[in-house]
């Protein structure tokens, strides 16, 4: 039943599959991010309390969502890498971590810049903010471990263990606003009741969230393709992909 998955443990098959996806993901990311952010910036109505400052939400919330989503994906890759020793999964860790780190940085930065006019402070050591900062350190730690060893597979294994252990932080970030007193507001969309947002604001936000989903996927795809090529550089198929004619009969 799962046999169709087998070829993707090999670099070349995955590289080609990702290559088929990349243009679509990039186009969808550009379209949805442009529409979502443009709508949010210029067409959504201002908030009755926060005025126009709330427009930061259209980049802050999607970035924060996929900073955690990417980490969850990386942890799943780490589990697959540790249990089944599949090298593509090891490389996925190295591909996801920088993307996740940038998304986390974006969430933290936009949060700080939003916090200054609304809360009166750039930063507060409260649960939501601190746990998101720890997420950034986890990403950096995973990357550092991945590249810290002369033997790439040892590095990948060490990074995978950290990625897997660190996944405990993801639910902590999500529930931090309920478990501790926080300056940060509670969930707006991801709750079972009606979302606490009018539809004129919710629509561009959802479009932007979709855009960031495609963006995250496109960025990870790009980096995973690079990582596969790097690891298989000596193989004829990789050389061909990089524009070098394969040698015959030498």
């Amino acid at each position: 039943m799962w046999k169709w998955l087998h070829p993707y443990a090999k670099g070349e098959a995955t590289y080609r599959l990702l290559g088929a996806w990349l243009p679509w993901l990039s186009a969808l990311a550009a379209l949805f991010v442009a529409v979502g952010l443009g709508w949010g910036l210029f067409y959504a109505p201002p908030d009755y309390q926060q005025g126009d400052s709330y427009r930061i939400i259209f980049i802050h919330v999607p970035a924060a969502m996929f900073s955690m989503g990417a980490y969850t994906g990386m942890a799943i890759a780490a589990l697959i890498a540790l249990v089944w020793q599949i090298r593509t999964a090891e490389w996925a860790i190295a591909a996801i971590a920088p993307v996740g780190a940038v998304l986390t940085f974006v969430a933290l930065f936009t949060g700080a810049v939003w916090g200054k006019p609304m809360w009166g402070t750039w930063w507060e050591w409260d649960a939501r903010l601190t746990s998101e900062l720890i997420l950034l350190f986890l990403y950096i730690g995973v990357l550092a471990l991945y590249y810290a060893f002369n033997d790439a597979r040892t590095g990948a294994k060490a990074a995978a263990i950290l990625a897997l252990v660190g996944v405990v932080n993801v639910p902590i970030i999500h529930f931090s606003v309920y478990w501790w007193n926080s300056l940060h507001q509670g969930a707006t969309i991801t709750k079972f009741e009606k979302p606490s947002m009018p539809v004129e604001m919710l629509t561009p936000l959802l479009i932007s969230i979709a855009g960031f989903l495609f963006l995250t996927a496109a960025l990870v795809t790009q980096r995973l393709r690079n990582e596969i090529l790097k690891q298989e550089l000596h193989r004829p198929w990789a050389q061909q992909q990089l524009g070098v004619e394969a040698e015959h009969g030498v």
């Binding site: 952010l37 910036l41 201002p46 005025g51 126009d52 400052s53 427009r55 930061i56 980049i59 802050h60 970035a63 920088p98 993307v99 940038v102 940085f105 974006v106 930065f109 936009t110 810049v113 939003w114 200054k116 006019p117 963006l215 960025l219 790009q222």
Partner: peptide, 25 residues
């Protein structure tokens, strides 16, 4: 932006720059 232009454009600018750096890298 109703007086919040600095904050809104700073957050959008830096975010897009960070993502652009990732793509170029």
């Amino acid at each position: 932006m109703g007086g919040y232009g600095f904050y809104v454009w700073l957050s959008f600018g830096v975010s897009l720059l960070a993502i652009a750096i990732l793509v170029v890298h």
